[in-house]
Computed example of a mutant assay.
Amino acid sequence: MNPLALSIVMSSLAIGTITTLSSHHWLLAWAGLEINTLAMIPLMTQHHHPRSVEASVKYFLVQAAASALILFSSINNASDTGEWSITNMSNPLSTTTLTIALSMKLGLAPFHFWLPEVLQGLNLMTGLILSTWQKIAPVALLLLTQNSLKPEILLTAGLISALTGGWGGLNQTHLRKILAFSSIAHLGWMVTVLTLSPKLAMLNFVIYLIMTTALFLALKQTSSTKIKTLSTSWQKSPVISSLSVLTLLSLGGLPPLSGFMPKWLIIQELTKQNINTMATIMTLSALLSLFFYLRLSYTASLTTHPGMSNSQTSYNTTSKQPSLLLATTISLSILLLPITPLLT
């Protein structure tokens, strides 16, 4: 993409997110979400491939429908209460439609069907933006309106998302689809605890952003898009490959890695609220996700591609991506568990 066009698109992404984060009026928040959506389309279609064009069309239609629902819920609430404030959502129909709209924006189950297909049609860097930056504004709206939303709907959506994310990723071979189902599962954990403890939900989301960024950058560094190409990553870069395995295990929630922290605290919060059945099902759903993370870890660390010799092969792995960001996110994905008392 032309550098000037890229700078305009990235600036629009930043402006759209900042507008939504800083707004108290529903129309401004809606405008920020629309700027975000429209700025994402050129990034998706920059390679002019049929898969990327298909992904951009699907993304646009889903986001447009979600934005229309947000506009409808805000207008309906304003006609009932006379206020456009984001934090004043008292109309039951408005809160329900808003929850559905934000679930569509985030790709939460049962409105998740677009996310794996769209992410599969993108390159890794655009997929990184879709999986991280594009979720900040909808999550901010969820946090702002969590006092008005119905806990039953959020708990149900979170539970279905955690199960769908774990179950859907089991038979996938494309890494971007696996990461899409991983996103669905992690956001399901966040939504489950949203009304019980917004601070925990925010912690879970931040750690999800860190771990997902680290894994996408590591996959970009080793040019891995399918499970079978992971078996060549050790010959390309042993250090990044071994750290990627730890990041995958952190995404799975294994101690003593950072990803264990939010799952541990969320299950503890659910048991404190006497929601023991849901805590048990959420724990079992984490085992489903852990299966495909272990599958990826095994492929990356303990298998060798049939076309490779036993000796280490020299590759030209020169990358223009910032190595400092990769090193920082991988370190945070692995080493944050000891500071848990400071974050709770």
Rank of each mutant, 00 (worst) to 15 (best):
Q46A: 13
S331T: 15
N204A: 13
V57P: 03
L130R: 01
A185T: 08
I75A: 13
R295T: 07
L170F: 09
S301A: 15
T328R: 02
P262G: 05
W84Y: 06
S182G: 13
L43G: 02
I153H: 07
L93H: 10
H25R: 04
L257Y: 06
A5P: 03
I339N: 08
F216G: 02
P3H: 08
A180G: 05
H174C: 00
M89P: 01
N276D: 12
W133K: 03
L43C: 07
L287M: 14
I184R: 01
T20H: 06
V57D: 00
S237R: 10
S23P: 05
A68P: 02
L194C: 09
T45N: 08
G82S: 08
G127Y: 00
A39T: 04
L337P: 04
G168S: 08
V239N: 12
S11H: 08
A101G: 10
W189L: 09
A300N: 07
M10K: 12
T222N: 12
L324N: 11
S73R: 03
G307E: 14
S7M: 12
A327V: 10
I184W: 02
L343E: 02
S131V: 00
T19C: 13
N276S: 13
S67P: 03
N77P: 04
T173D: 09
I275S: 11
E117K: 09
L332E: 08
F113T: 11
T232Y: 07
K150C: 11
G158K: 03
Q273C: 10
W26S: 13
M125Y: 12
S311F: 11
L251V: 09
Q312R: 14
L302V: 09
L217Q: 05
G107W: 02
L38K: 02
T317Y: 05
F292C: 07
T20Y: 07
T95P: 00
I330K: 01
A201T: 05
L332N: 08
L69W: 04
W167E: 00
H186Q: 14
S74Y: 05
V206Q: 07
T303V: 10
I160Y: 06
L4Y: 12
S323L: 15
T232I: 15
P262I: 06
M190I: 14
T329G: 04
G252C: 10
T304F: 09
L115H: 07
L296A: 06
N77V: 06
L187H: 11
K135Y: 09
N316Q: 13
L325T: 14
N147R: 13
T299G: 00
W84Q: 04
G32D: 03
P151A: 10
S85M: 11
A109K: 01
T213K: 02
Q268Y: 10
L194S: 08
T97L: 15
M40F: 15
G259V: 04
V193S: 09
L249F: 12
